[in-house]
């Protein structure tokens, strides 16, 4: 079953001085199956971030549509957007985006509190997740007291605790050392195995290699995609690298 459909997405920015326009996305279409783990790769300026912002309903496309479970999220009214985001989307960011005035437990609770959830429910959900991610000992600490890897694990917990339809991850390994990166990618694989849909934007070939499918974006269009299928991580890694090299060379590469 398809959970996300992106159809003919176009985004044109007009600069403050009239006349100049920048096309960030020219024509992007793809879809994501329920339970899939998709990575989106592309160079800086290829439009990945714009795409993710639109998927996150933080930005509106110039044209085209984004369907989540068949509902067009670009048509959601401004006042309902936060609730929609809270209920359906989970976010993991490169710089964690944890609030330094909250301890880690409250950081994880934040989206639930905003949704007026009962404390008992929050507590039981947290207990389940905390066990899974082994962060029980950290819960009463503050963000500045823990490492980057731990912060990112907490951020993943925060994304998961609302039971979102899809997790949107923006360069989640970008600020992590290699061990923490591996750790995080394992976590993504684990939660993906439980049926969680994940959409990740990344620069890192290694991160992309852990996904079940990789989409390549170039100049605002989907340029190519690779299915992992039965490939091992290292085979996938090489394949992605080949694609990136050919993309950089500019030659037409089609499988």
């Amino acid at each position: 079953m398809e959970i996300l459909n992106v159809n003919n997405l176009k985004k044109v920015y007009s600069t403050r001085f009239q006349g100049n326009t920048v096309t960030a996305l020219s024509n992007v279409s793809f879809s994501v199956e329920d339970g899939e783990y998709v990575a989106i790769m592309g160079e800086s300026g290829s439009g990945k971030s714009t795409l993710l912002n639109i998927l996150a309903s933080l930005d509106k496309p110039t044209s085209g549509e984004v369907l989540l479970d068949g509902n067009n999220i670009t048509k959601i009214k401004e006042k309902d957007i936060s609730k929609f985001r809270r209920d359906n989307l989970g976010f993991v960011f490169q710089d964690f985006n944890l609030l330094d005035t909250f301890n880690l437990k409250d950081n994880i609770f934040l989206p639930l509190v905003l949704a007026n959830t009962k404390y008992e429910i929050m507590e039981s959900r947290l207990n389940k997740i905390a066990k899974q991610f082994e962060i029980h000992a950290l819960l009463n600490k503050y963000p500045y007291e823990v490492s980057g890897g731990e912060k990112q694990r907490v951020a993943v917990c925060r994304a998961l605790i609302t039971n979102p339809r899809i997790i949107l991850a923006d360069e989640p390994t970008g600020a992590l050392d290699s061990r923490s990166s591996d750790n995080l990618l394992n976590i993504f694989n684990d939660i993906n195995k439980t049926g969680q849909t994940i959409l990740m934007v990344t620069h890192s070939t290694k991160a992309a290699a852990s996904a079940s499918r990789v989409l390549f974006i170039k100049d605002g269009e989907v340029y190519h995609q690779i299915y992992k299928g039965a490939m091992s991580n290292s085979e996938m890694y090489e394949k992605i690298n080949d694609t990136l090299v050919s993309m950089a060379k500019g030659s037409d590469y089609h499988e």
């Binding site: 006042k79 936060s82 609730k83 809270r86 960011f93 005035t101 934040l110 989206p111 925060r158």
Partner: peptide
């Protein structure tokens, strides 16, 4: 910075 994060996590502009 704090309020940007809160918006990203699902707080509306009004909230």
């Amino acid at each position: 910075q704090r309020f940007i994060i809160m918006q990203k996590v699902g707080m509306s502009k009004n909230e």
